[in-house]
Design a protein around this nucleic acid. Sequence first.
DNA 1: CGTGTCGTTGAGCGCTTTCAACCCTGGTGG
DNA 2: CCACCAGGGTTGAAAGCGCTCAACGACACG
Lengths: 242, 242
Amino acid sequence: MNLITVSPGQIQDTMARLSYFEGWEKDQLARLAVGAKQISLAKKDLLVTKGDRIQAMYVVISGQIRLFIPLSNGAERVISLVEKGESFGEPCLIQSEHCPYNAAAGKDAHVLAIDAMVYRRELHHSTFLAERTLGLISQRLLHTLRDIEICAQPSSLQRVAHYLLHLQPAGESVTREIRLPALKRDIAAKLGLSQETFSRMLAFMAQQGFIQFTGSLVQVDDWARLRGLASAGCPMEVSDKN
Amino acid sequence: MNLITVSPGQIQDTMARLSYFEGWEKDQLARLAVGAKQISLAKKDLLVTKGDRIQAMYVVISGQIRLFIPLSNGAERVISLVEKGESFGEPCLIQSEHCPYNAAAGKDAHVLAIDAMVYRRELHHSTFLAERTLGLISQRLLHTLRDIEICAQPSSLQRVAHYLLHLQPAGESVTREIRLPALKRDIAAKLGLSQETFSRMLAFMAQQGFIQFTGSLVQVDDWARLRGLASAGCPMEVSDKN
DNA sequence: CGTGTCGTTGAGCGCTTTCAACCCTGGTGG
DNA sequence: CCACCAGGGTTGAAAGCGCTCAACGACACG
């Protein structure tokens, strides 16, 4: 982890290019840029430790940040995979609570750290920012609830089915290729599965003809049956009965 | 489920007595009371169905509302147990999304339904309300993350241990009685366990001398060992080896 | 005294995990 | 050019944990 010295002007430029700050006014950016820092992270570098009282809110400039909870058996539960233009940490700042997750780089990454005091002040003074943030956090809460729904599925096969369905962009039943948005290991950790089980479930669905896949490219051939799987669940019967 | 006709004045009075509206200005209450309805629910009555586009945000006046996701095997995953003075549904209104959970009465209950349009307008006009709501949703998100952490624990024993620890009010290691905040069945469903497993884990911890309990009254005798259990995990060894 | 709800306990099965070895790909350096 | 290595992923076999099903107990209520 490396703290890069960047002039406020450069920082403001960087901000202007991030989707997170789309539609913001110039002077607002300028105020937030005060005390902001840019951080470079190598893959696996730890940015925030669970329990920290973080003093900044973070926006990802490039790369990917993994938010996860370390577990007693050495495994981890992935909460979120934060991509370029997305942010994290706001709730902790707003509520002045300890950070509930670790944050580490999933790939080499650059991150913008916006100072907590500055952020809070701006939040308090700007109706625009407050409303925007409210929408953001609401969305994040809803998204988290979707994740819980997936993890709550009784069988691992259903978990994976649900996950694939939620990956579907918006266009309907079109047979279409999906690219898994992260390492399978991380996806598995987000679904509350072991890497091996995730792999097996994908293999099973492929063998059944629901999907095809090579690497992180998945092609769903039968949305209907996939949906059926997700909502009904099938006993994962052994296939040697022909 | 029963819709009670109540005059705006009465509704405003009810609101003034709820902790949710503590510190609000009179005229703000008056504006929100417009179009608000009071609803009576018998135990198990369904208020919101997953997927609904709800047209109100809800505040519990009395009783208890269970928020849960129905699962394919007939079981359900409890998201939250909303008590008197607490609210739910804001994120859906703010984001205009489908409701991600069912809401049903855990006991006979009374609920205040605040009209979506009115709520959104007020949210937009009142800095006070926006800021307050931002804090509320942030807190809820953090709380949800804690729930995920608990559910992510590798063994059911650790899940229960974590849960009990989070129940600890604030006062430290004092041997103190805790009252389970809901039916054991619902707590189990919130931990992602079957009712039976939850019961067995409690029994095990009692047998080991960590806790004592009768009904919903739990007395923790050894916080230290409980903490150890939560963070280390032990193989749940059979006890016949003395 | 019956009925319904809530909780506990027991027995058995099956899914997931764990541990292991192995494959595949891309990068690196001799 | 190829050997080597590291990281990511797949596959196999075994074992344990939690679920399901079922019966029973406790308690409140009409």
